[in-house]
């Protein structure tokens, strides 16, 4: 019966980023999302003695994270529109797809964070700041060819890590 500290630590370390990404989809605020993830894990920890043998603790954590996120949105209603809230509430909370999406996101984040510094910078400027290759080359004082090479290297790495193969 129950979850021992070592098992819990592994659960926490393997899933914290993904659970945060999952909460972030609801609250759109990474600091709040981190707090919610902490609270979700805390609830699991507090219930560790009562968790039956063989239960899916990861799914339980996501379910709690989902509920906490919904509560958070409700409590901060003035900042979000009713329609959006209804959409969120009607979603199936522990649908496999949501969890898979969060885990995929965490894997992407992890891959990006392990890219060589230059490739990472160029990639983020391109994909998240939506800058053109021309603008990136100008800002970093490198040629467009160099920017292309970094993007190509970054995408290759992502394909390899996420899709399991390089084309």
């Amino acid at each position: 019966m129950g979850i021992d500290t070592k098992t819990f630590e592994t659960l926490f370390k393997q899933n914290f980023v993904a659970v945060t990404a999952y909460c972030n989809k609801y609250v759109r605020d990474t600091e709040e999302a981190k707090d919610l993830a902490h609270r979700a894990f805390m609830k699991v920890w507090e219930k560790r003695e009562a968790v039956p043998e063989g239960s899916n603790v990861k799914a339980l954590t996501y379910r709690i994270a989902h509920n906490l996120s919904i509560n958070y949105i409700r409590d901060h209603k003035k900042f979000c529109d009713e329609e959006e809230l209804q959409t969120v509430e009607s979603e199936n909370s522990d649908a496999d797809n949501d969890i898979k999406a969060a885990e995929l996101e965490a894997a992407v984040i992890d891959t990006i964070n392990h890219m060589p510094e230059k490739s990472k910078k160029v990639f983020l400027m391109s994909r998240y700041d939506q800058l053109s290759y021309n603008d990136i080359a100008g800002q970093l004082g490198v040629s467009i060819k160099t920017v292309e090479a970094h993007i190509s290297a970054a995408l290759k790495l992502l394909r390899k890590k996420i899709f399991g193969s390089a084309p």
Partner: peptide, 25 residues
């Protein structure tokens, strides 16, 4: 594959140090 990569709100904000978060926890 370029368009297969999911959009993340701000990947830099999710640069999370798991060991640090575990220590906090």
């Amino acid at each position: 594959h370029d368009n297969d990569i999911p959009y993340i709100s701000d990947v830099r904000m999710l640069d999370i140090d798991t060991d640090h978060e575990w220590a906090r926890f």
